[in-house]
Design a protein around this nucleic acid. Structure first.
Lengths: 251, 251
DNA sequence: CAGGGAATTTCGTCTGACAAAATGATTGAC
DNA sequence: GTCAATCATTTTGTCAGACGAAATTCCCTG
């Protein structure tokens, strides 16, 4: 039996700012459940493949089954949950190949965002990007993984905002949620942090210069480098899972 | 009071092949409702902005409110429906600006698909693309709007398939559904059909030649040309709506 | 004709129920 | 002892009904 889901015991309002959609829009029970579940999945507190029986979610959140089921349908459409008929919902796993394809989509879209950003930059937007970059530099000095990730997310949010395409912005937010599964970021990889910061600086420089092609290339390069590390981590984790599985099968 | 929704009276199984997801996967009541509703919205039988009271959907589909609500949440996540709290669901309108941004996203993604296609082409894939192109040529000769649109969709489906990125494929399918709202295609625009066919032939030629850059450019150009027409149509329709609105307000 | 309040509609949520399907356990055969 | 089949349990899928809350509409009054 899985441990009791720690949802109801968590303070809802004080949830740390997440990249997830509907940050605090918990006006309805259904939205609150979706929000909590999303946060739990994206943050990795629920592991990929873990089953989420409706009854336990009801007990954990205090919501009725109808509300829980609606929230689950929503998360399923977002790609975070899979519901197998007559078997129930589970945290949707992220196969290596799908991660690769998702990173490819992210590179294409974020490259376009960088291009737009360079074309449309205004003084105010550049100031916002500078501020986000400063926050990243500060976070990088602390070597605090989550802080770096949060600052990085803020930088990209500012960039997407500046690009002025909300549709692509929503797509990227969804992609980020999906790729955040279990925090497979390589920020703490030896040497990767400095490299990553340099890439980010290159992106900002290209945007400031108004060089659309350079900004697009810098964004794509940054995503591809991040993807390379993340895919290694993901592959290793899959290997681990298999090892654990074998270990459990032969005790 | 709006006319009764003609859903239950429609044969479900014999629904003409639609571009929508879950084409016939109506194993469950909820899936069937979602499928019917999606088809009705994408095909334009429900106009943008039209309200869809739960009770009427229940009566029209014969499903219980819980099933209908789950289906609505799903369509909301797909961007086809908006649910305003305490006011109810409605067919999500497509503002001009959002259409513009969606076409931009489509151009970027479909350009990448074209590029991938040119790089990875195999004999079998080229054969499939040729077949789809032949079907398009045949449909174009008949000047039958829906047939041309269907053939066009089949061509792009084949291309997306050949690109080998299912994640982007799903994104594009969703984008197509959203942009199909009310069939705002310009295939019957004077001279557009011939132009469109020429662009499609250029795409296929670039793919066959394995010229990734040319394929990407051709795809982007095709989408941008289509978008130009569609946005004109959409703007005109919006103008019409306003005129109708004014007319209704001052009878 | 405008403003305000009552009546109606529609949603949001909960509860309870039951059949169908899947899962896991038990039993029997070889 | 292992495999297969059967049975019990769990979980989901769907329905029906109920009730408060919010929004909309309508009507009445000034």
């Amino acid at each position: 039996m899985p441990a009791a889901l720690k949802l109801a015991t968590m303070p809802v309002s004080s949830s740390q700012k997440s990249i997830a959609a509907e940050p605090e829009a918990a006006g309805s029970v259904r939205a609150a459940v979706a929000c909590q579940l999303r946060e739990a999945i994206v943050s990795g507190r629920y592991r990929a493949g873990q089953r989420l029986p409706e009854r336990e979610l009801c007990a954990a959140t205090g919501a009725a089954r109808s509300s829980v089921r609606e929230a689950l349908r929503q998360l399923e459409a977002e790609g975070l949950v899979t519901i197998i008929p007559h078997r129930g919902p589970m945290v949707r796993p992220l196969p290596l190949e799908e991660a690769r394809q998702t990173y490819a989509a992210r590179a294409v879209l974020e490259g376009y965002v960088g291009r737009l950003c360079a074309q449309r930059r205004t003084a105010a937007q550049l100031a916002a990007l500078d501020a986000a970059m400063d926050a990243m530099e500060a976070a990088a000095k602390t070597l605090d993984g989550p802080a770096v990730i949060a600052a990085n997310a803020a930088f990209y949010a500012a960039m997407t905002e500046s690009a002025g395409n909300a549709v692509i912005g929503a797509m990227l937010r969804s992609i980020h949620n999906r790729l955040a599964l279990g925090r497979l970021s390589g920020v703490l990889w030896p040497g990767r942090l400095a490299e990553s910061m340099a890439e980010n600086r290159a992106i900002l420089a290209a945007i400031r210069a108004g060089d659309a092609a350079a900004a697009e290339a810098a964004c794509i390069h940054h995503i591809e480098a991040s993807a390379a590390i993340a895919l290694v981590i993901l592959a290793a984790r899959h290997g681990q899972d298999e090892a654990i599985l074998l270990q459990e099968q032969t005790p």
